[in-house]
Design a protein around this nucleic acid. Structure first.
Ligand SMILES: [Zn+2]
Ligand SMILES: [Zn+2]
Ligand SMILES: [Zn+2]
Ligand SMILES: [Zn+2]
Lengths: 266, 266
DNA sequence: TCAGGTCAAGGCTACC
DNA sequence: GGTAGCCTTGACCTGA
């Protein structure tokens, strides 16, 4: 009983570790493997990293397909159909603050907003942001975030109902069937200039469509096609936000939720 | 509640009942464990601070809750049909797993069951769960869920659980018996989802329930007792109470939820 | 109406 | 202290 405090605490087990005692070995191995590969990713750069990651993604995808009907694992995640980060061209993990971005740009934008950071570019405000140099100039990275339409007000206005989404998708395919989505080789300027308010009021997230249908990256560049097609367009407060008078740091989440409620007014 | 840190640590030491094998622990497992242990340390530290803070602001919380009820009655004619969440006193959105709960507790219970999580309280199993601190101690939150009667086997309408759930339940019965054999000091086992089977011995999972046989909700009386008990608050106009800064967010959040409920039920 | 699924926000924490 | 990957949470959606 002469153990130090740190020893005692280290001996105590967390819930996650305990839960693995009762899970299958495949899950455990999968978890360990993910941990391992994360460390590898930290050490090794560029192409090797991509190869490992792709293999892993493919593997988890296969596993998910195998036991889609039997064991629903919350850890198995299919690759996100969001293409590349609009800011740094890294792999996008979802629509964060209204824009498909990677985890890094998501966190960077969040930190910048919460702390109201004022950055300054030391290279003439013309830095081109990519995955490797995105941490070199915070000012230009944040500017890129804003330019791409990231906004705390554009957060998750609610998912598009299925009917609306299908309609929008149909229109999307009709109007612009030849749009190349998320081509990394395409220049930044080729991205359609996105109206901030339009994005905000018509945030479209990729809900779970039929898994078999998701083969291609799906993200609508033109949100306008989805925009006002909501069946109950008569309600006046549906399309206008109530912007907060004082956007303080602590009220960010609250403001977002208020906006969210507006969208669901039907 | 007001226990010293040393007491907490002693508890975590004495109640150690995990079957985790330290001898055969690989490097990766040790890595995972160490990582989580540090997280627990942070959790304990922050939680102790928060508990102290909660004590100081308990009165303000009460005032806030009272005002919430009165404001609800102002905006919404009908009282919310489900009252408050039996677990965390948040707004209940329906009868989930047999008990009127909020969306958060519903999801938490679902995840706990599906993933067979085993939680542990680091504060002596006496945490009082409310809306603000419900994420602080998963063990006590899950205990509260069980105590209030949440059960996958007591689902209303006798909805047939999927193959996954049946399998999970079957494994549960097996694992629970084996756990009791392995480790008699089962303070953790009492927290585990396996004690679901002890709550409701009527196993409905393996048989197809005829929907026509279950016409009346068996918990309707409880709902009404909860929904109507909105206290006749004396002061509907108590806008001038002093709250800490961080509680301003909650107050706004509350108002938002009231508005949302209007949309929900109109 | 409710169980189950979805997924962005935020939390946590390693790595630097 | 910043970055970013992983995980949990809970508001929301959908089918039954
Ligand atoms: Zn990025
Ligand atoms: Zn720059
Ligand atoms: Zn609750
Ligand atoms: Zn507790």
């Amino acid at each position: 009983m002469n153990r130090s405090i740190s020893e005692v605490i280290n001996d105590s087990h967390n819930s996650r570790t305990e839960s693995f005692d009762h899970q299958s070995m495949t899950d455990d191995e999968h978890y360990v493997q993910k941990r391992k590969s994360r460390r590898i990713r930290t050490l090794i750069k560029s192409s090797v990293e991509d190869i490992i990651h792709d293999k892993q993604t493919e593997q988890s995808h296969n596993i998910r397909n195998i036991r889609r009907n039997s064991a629903t694992s919350l850890f198995d995640r299919r690759p996100f159909p969001f293409g590349h980060c609009r800011v740094c061209m890294d792999k996008a993990t979802g629509a964060h603050y209204g824009v498909p971005t990677c985890e890094g740009c998501k966190g960077f934008f969040k930190r910048s907003i919460l702390r109201k950071e004022k950055y300054r570019c030391y290279f003439g405000d013309g830095c081109v942001i990519n995955t490797d140099n995105r941490n070199r100039c915070k000012s230009c990275r944040f500017q890129k975030c804003l330019k791409e339409g990231m906004s705390v007000e554009g957060v998750r206005m609610g998912r598009i109902p299925k009917l609306v989404k299908e309609k929008a998708l149909a229109e999307h395919h009709l109007s612009s069937s030849s749009i190349e989505n998320d081509d990394p080789s395409s220049s930044i300027a080729s991205t359609s200039p996105s109206c901030l308010s339009s994005i905000n009021s018509n945030n479209l997230t990729s809900t779970d469509m039929n898994l078999d249908l998701i083969d291609e990256p799906f993200f609508l560049d033109d949100f306008e096609s989805v925009s006002i097609d909501t069946p109950s367009t008569t309600s006046p407060s549906c399309h206008s936000y109530v912007l907060p008078e004082n956007l303080t740091v602590d009220e960010t989440k609250t403001n977002h939720k208020e906006n969210q409620s507006i969208f669901f007014f039907t």
